[in-house]
């Protein structure tokens, strides 16, 4: 009744909370050339779990910003300009906070839920697995 597949269908969160599900979704996104959205989503979760007093936190925040937001990649293109400015300013002013990526992550998550996740559930890669 609560098979992995049933859980994957429930929500994006359930899919990403399952090792096989996350792996298969990642493979799907690689084919769709937007795997950065998923890596960014996980990076935001990882950042939120970090000890904000650890000097590493600022370096990780900068690395996430540089890799996904500052460029013209798939994540950057999906984020609203004010959201990008908020992250950029937080880093510039060194106002590092556990929640500083939350708005950006929420926007990317909404895009994934509405697009990639729906496509995934009808994709060949998913149906073959089923």
């Amino acid at each position: 009744p609560d098979s992995p597949l049933a859980r994957w269908n429930k929500s994006l969160h359930s899919l990403l909370g399952d090792q096989d599900g996350a792996h298969l979704f990642r493979t799907f996104l690689e084919r769709e050339k937007c795997v950065d959205t998923l890596d960014f989503w996980f990076a935001c979760n990882g950042f939120r779990q970090m000890d904000i007093k650890d000097p590493k936190a600022l370096r990780v925040a900068k690395a996430i910003h540089k890799r996904y937001i500052e460029n013209c990649g798939v994540v950057s293109k999906q984020l609203k300009p004010p959201t990008k400015v908020f992250v950029r300013d937080s880093i510039k002013k060194q106002l590092i906070d556990s929640t500083m990526f939350d708005p950006a992550q929420a926007e990317i998550q909404l895009m994934m839920e509405d697009n990639a996740y729906q496509m995934f559930l009808t994709s060949d890669i998913y149906l073959e697995y089923v």
């Binding site: 990403l16 909370g17 399952d18 996350a22 779990q49 990780v60 690395a63 996430i64």
Partner: peptide, 20 residues
């Protein structure tokens, strides 16, 4: 000292489900 890429990868991996 860890490189930026290593730190980012470590951060992503730490959030992946069901680490073994």
């Amino acid at each position: 000292i860890d490189s930026e890429d290593d730190l980012l990868q470590e951060c992503i991996t730490s959030a992946m489900p069901n680490k073994k």
